[in-house]
């Protein structure tokens, strides 16, 4: 054993100092010269820099993996700059990296340069919409899905009156109302990638997207406005009769009641629904 040096920080002090140095290098410049051994090889700053560089590059790589379409649609340099700002203000507090990019769409919304202006720029709306879609895709991909659902129960949608049913949506279903035809844009973006064609066309027209997972494959299911609202309501209330009444009032269209079973069967086949059962306490 070697002898310890006097006036060294405690373990707790040292860890707080080192974490600050890694996450905010500018705050603790030069502090480490008496703390880090420099008797061999490279200097203290260079040693610390390995951790500082590794920290940001490692997390940046995770952000890039979660938002590949955003990088394609804008640019890698722009993305890296925004992601670094985001990581500086939203350091990870989780033991895994699944939530690292969770608040990135909100961050982009908060950070938009036109947020004080009366007329907002479409480009930022598009950016935030695309970021939200990518985050939802990640959540759907990793979340609890409907793969283990008993498909026999979905026949209740065909055999029983709708007002007698309860619907449990898949927990990983995500719903996005985009001001743009986002799914079409992404299809073109990825095709142009392959064929090296011109930039995809972005059409400003509302698109209602259910992000769902069927047999462990995440997909975009484009739905009509009433179908979208039906799913939104079912996320909070499993009683189908209550929900259909609200939809009927909202859309004043009695035909919806007739179309609903077909839509729900289609949604079930795409993994949006995990369970259907009879209401027992009517």
């Amino acid at each position: 054993m070697k002898t310890t040096q006097p006036s060294m920080p405690t373990l707790e002090e040292l860890q707080h100092l080192m974490q600050t140095a890694i996450q905010h290098p500018q705050r603790v410049r030069g502090t480490f010269h008496n703390i880090i051994n420099t008797s061999y090889g490279i200097g203290a700053d260079q040693r610390l820099a390995i951790y500082q560089r590794g920290y940001i590059l490692r997390l940046l790589e995770c952000m890039r993996a979660e938002y590949p379409q955003l990088i394609k649609a804008f640019s890698a340099d722009w993305f890296d700059t925004m992601a670094q700002h985001y990581l500086a203000s939203h350091p990870s507090s989780s033991t895994n990296l699944n939530d690292l990019g969770a608040r990135f769409p909100d961050f982009l919304q908060q950070d938009r340069p036109d947020k004080q202006e009366s007329v907002q720029d479409d480009a930022f709306d598009f950016l935030i919409s695309l970021a939200t879609l990518e985050r939802f895709r990640t959540e759907t991909s990793r979340g609890k899905g409907s793969e283990n659902a008993d498909f026999n129960q979905f026949s209740l949608l065909e055999t029983q009156p709708l007002d007698s049913l309860k619907i449990e949506l898949a927990p990983n279903l995500r719903l996005l109302k985009s001001p743009f035809q986002l799914v079409d844009y992404l299809t073109q973006l990825n095709q142009s990638d392959n064929a090296n064609n011109s930039s995809p066309e972005l059409i400003k027209q509302t698109q209602h997207i259910a992000i769902c997972r069927e047999n462990y494959r995440t997909q975009y299911f484009i739905v009509k406005p009433w179908q979208f609202d039906l799913l939104v309501l079912l996320q909070h209330n499993t009683n189908l009769n209550d929900v259909l009444q609200q939809i009927n009032q909202q859309y004043a269209d009695s035909a919806i009641y007739g179309f609903a079973p077909f839509f729900l069967l289609q949604a079930a086949s795409k993994g949006c629904i995990r369970g259907v059962c009879l209401v027992t306490n009517k």
Partner: peptide, 18 residues
Amino acid sequence: GVQHLNTHDLLPVPLTEE
């Protein structure tokens, strides 16, 4: 990490009795 943050790196500890 400390203060409930995670650097997602494997940071060295001082090799002391403490």
